[in-house]
Design a protein around this nucleic acid. Structure first.
Length: 468
RNA sequence: UCCUUCUUAGCUCAGUUGGUUAGAGCAUCUGACUGUUAAUCAGAGGGUCGCUGGUUCAAGUCCAGCAGAGGGAGCCA
């Protein structure tokens, strides 16, 4: 074939005027559909650079018959031809094929992706091929754009990206069951005198796990660099089977020195609105597809979220609203117990009809490190609740007083020797500070309108499922 | 982990009060058509009804166990 640099489909469709009608280009991609007759064949080609296909027009008589038969749904081809204005409806330009090379055929009898739509459940079973669908192409491009926007937002606002460890030796993070990391022989591990596994012989000389949060280490960074964020994988060994939980997910955790709970809420709201705006500005093709195929209110909902203030109120105020709402709940509303999903949904979807930030929860239902209020009963926690997905952000102002923090550790039986390094930040040059955790996949759920978190990550990890 | 619904062709689903040889649309294959847009039209092939056991003259259909999936709940991001 001629030596021509590859042009992406995105470029051909967007920049065809500067490429020039009548000029030859080389497109490479995967065949979505093929139709036509003896005299003319139309091939819809997609290379993932954009949601749209480009139409390749070929005269079968001009090509080797054996080769031409291999151009079926799913096959991968390289086409050199002339970019022309399309006489047909539905596209501005198309490519008149002069040379075609088949990189890889795809047996139509066994290739699982068809021209017709598939259920999301079926696509989960073929996660190795689903990136080739319009839906997952759109989701994955949006996922990329959101990753980029997160780094851009923090960089533009003076935050430093802190790489907190994936493997941790601390059991004290308090965010649920963890995955053990070990190089010991599972069949015949070294034992202590009392018959327990002796992790002093393990790789790190102690028991280690995959991280459930980078927050504690993030605070160490904030106590030096002032404004930091983490963005990395997080692991929870909880047996959660819901459309909102993964065993392996990505989390963003900003942590800022000298911020109080109000600064923290301002940051969370500004950050989320920035991300939604970024998607509206940079991913409209993909959003329009998702809006059309899955969720007709998606774009309206995204616009609404950027244009309206989040409603801020305390846990105590929320409990009062719920108790006087007249609404029947399966679970009773009661000051001192955590709100159920149905309560949160009522507040967000029925009562306020907008994102809600709840603060000042009872200390008994929140983590040990949250700043204790004067009332002795509540802590400066904040949860950002979104329609359809519930808690998208959980955060707090942190307890910066050494003695109060140590006392709290003792109450909830966290051994000080395990987190001496964390307590040290309160001993030496302590400062008020605050931060939060944003579940990346939950953000992508909101942005894409997808209903199941397994459909917004390329290869989901859930109980009983680590295929691919 | 609990509650609940589901599992029939490659995919999405029908299948009546249990009754002969298991149905459709799409996909695939063959043919027709000189510009299609998830092309259209005609024809063909394609099934161990999730698995195991039970009830019955007879089970896709009823019962039990197991496996997998969906939805809801809990844990949370």
């Amino acid at each position: 074939m001629d030596k021509l640099k590859r042009t992406t489909v995105a470029s051909a469709l967007r920049d065809w005027e500067s490429i020039g009608i009548g000029n030859s280009i080389n497109l490479k991609g995967w065949v979505r559909t093929r139709r036509g007759n003896k005299n003319v064949t139309f091939i819809a080609l997609n290379d993932g650079s954009i949601i749209h296909n480009i139409q390749i027009v070929a005269n079968p008589a001009d090509f080797n018959e054996e080769m031409f038969r291999l151009i079926t749904t799913g096959s991968c081809i390289s086409v050199i031809g002339e970019l022309v204005e399309s006489p047909g409806q539905g596209q501005a330009v198309e490519l008149i094929a002069r040379e075609i090379e088949v990189y890889g055929s795809a047996d139509p009898e066994t290739y699982p992706l068809q021209k017709k739509g598939h259920s999301l459940e079926f696509l989960r079973e073929i996660a190795h091929l689903r990136p080739r669908t319009n839906t997952f192409g759109a989701v994955l491009r949006i996922r990329h754009a959101m990753s980029f926007a997160i780094h851009k937002y923090f960089n533009d606002n003076g935050f430093y990206y802190l790489h907190t460890p994936i493997i941790t030796g601390s059991d004290a993070e308090g965010a649920g069951a963890m995955f053990r990391v070990t190089t010991l022989d599972p069949v015949n591990p070294p034992l202590t005198e009392t018959g327990e596994v002796d992790y002093s012989h393990d790789f790190f000389g102690k028991a280690t796990n995959l991280t459930v949060s980078g927050q504690l280490e993030g605070e160490l960074g904030a106590m030096a660099l002032s404004k930091i964020y983490t963005f990395g994988p997080t692991f929870r060994a909880e047996n959660s089977n819901t459309p909102r939980h993964l065993a392996e997910f990505w989390m963003i955790e900003p942590e800022v020195a000298f911020y109080d709970i109000h600064d923290n809420m301002d940051l969370a709201e500004d950050f989320l609105k920035y991300l939604v705006n970024y998607a509206l500005e940079h991913c409209m093709d993909d959003l329009e597809f998702l809006n059309k195929m899955y969720d007709h209110e998606l774009i309206d909902r995204l616009r609404f979220a950027t244009e309206n203030d989040f409603k801020r109120l305390t846990y105590t105020e929320a409990v009062e609203i719920l108790m006087t709402s007249g609404q029947k709940f399966v679970y009773k509303v009661d000051w001192g117990t955590d709100l159920q999903s149905e309560h949160e949904r009522y507040l967000v979807e029925k009562h306020f009809k907008r994102p809600v930030i709840l603060t000042d929860y009872p200390s008994t239902i929140k983590a040990f490190y949250m700043k204790q209020n004067e009332d002795g009963k509540t802590v400066r926690a904040m949860d950002v609740l979104f329609p359809r997905i519930g808690e998208i952000i959980g955060g707090s102002q942190r307890e910066e007083n050494y003695q109060k923090l140590v006392n709290r550790c003792r109450e909830v039986e966290i051994p000080e020797k395990d987190i001496w390094w964390y307590l040290d930040t309160r001993k030496y040059g302590t400062a008020p500070h605050a931060g939060f955790g944003l579940g990346f996949e939950r953000l992508i759920l909101f942005i894409t309108g997808m209903a199941n978190i397994r459909d917004v990550i390329p290869f989901p990890r859930t109980p009983q499922n680590a295929e691919f």
